[in-house]
Design a protein around this nucleic acid. Structure first.
Lengths: 143, 143
DNA sequence: ATTACTGCAAAGCATTTGCAGACTG
DNA sequence: CAGTCTGCAAATGCTTTGCAGTAAT
């Protein structure tokens, strides 16, 4: 498992963005994350070693890094709570288990061939979001 | 324009659901709607002729009719506020203008051919949601 | 007459914001 | 040192809920 940590990231810290331990902590959590996280989850994980980053600060940091394009904000399944993940500059979509709420990332995107057909119409497409929902393997097997 | 009104709908009122003027008002608004509406918009429109249905009541009615499958709840573009529309039993997706927030419904769905490929995997698909975003004709032309 | 539905007001969440002190560059 | 960032606490906006009165079957 090749896990990048805050020290390694040091070289690629964005210009003009002050380096604080809160920001390092939030980015480290996002880098380790196995999937998109809610703000509250991010705060909790920053607290695993040391004092947690305050929720308001988490939101402020997320706002900044989303604006810088380092992360993306997603709202999944009924828009309950926003989730965030690092922008890995790969086009991604998500499958959400309606039972356990687990979020599975997918690499494949069926939209590429479809979008051009929309472009000629009344709408200039700049992006899209696709959510698949259903049951993950575990929940489908569960009673 | 064949607009169905409350009187016409009379014959198809769901069994076991009490018919109150608030429910008729909310359903009438949804039937006339040109697109998905927020709860607050629904309340406002019920007030156009007579006393508006209270917001808490609107939410309760929406919850019921969504549960009955008569309407669908959507959260679009960042999950800010949920919007609702009657379930017309047609598979639909939405294009959202990132400037004016106008929502355009689309009839075409590119997913049908793609879903089966997912089914063999770790996920049993029961539904999906696709949002397209970009600029509508008006906003694209605007300065 | 029963039972469900509405209005009202207050509570709940996720998210945002004002301010004063703390830290970075 | 100047300007930014954080913590705290309070505010906000959407949505939900408890309760008592009102209306539908």
């Amino acid at each position: 498992m090749t896990e990048r940590n805050a020290a390694e990231r040091g070289n690629e810290w964005p210009a003009g963005m002050k380096r604080t331990k809160q920001r390092e902590a939030v980015l480290a959590v996002l880098e380790r994350a196995e999937g998109p996280l809610r703000a509250a989850e991010i705060r909790a994980r920053t607290g695993e070693d040391g004092a947690p980053v305050r929720l308001s600060t988490v939101y402020r940091i997320l706002e900044i890094i989303v604006k810088k394009g380092m992360a993306v904000k997603l709202s999944i399944l009924g828009g309950e709570t926003a989730v965030y993940e690092l922008n890995r500059f790969r086009h991604r979509h998500y499958a959400v288990c309606v039972r356990c709420r687990k979020i599975v990332s997918m690499d494949n995107c069926p939209m590429e061939r479809f979008i051009p057909k929309l472009e000629d119409g009344d709408f200039r497409v700049t992006g899209h979001n696709l959510e698949i929902y259903g049951y993950c393997k575990d929940c489908d097997a569960a009673p």
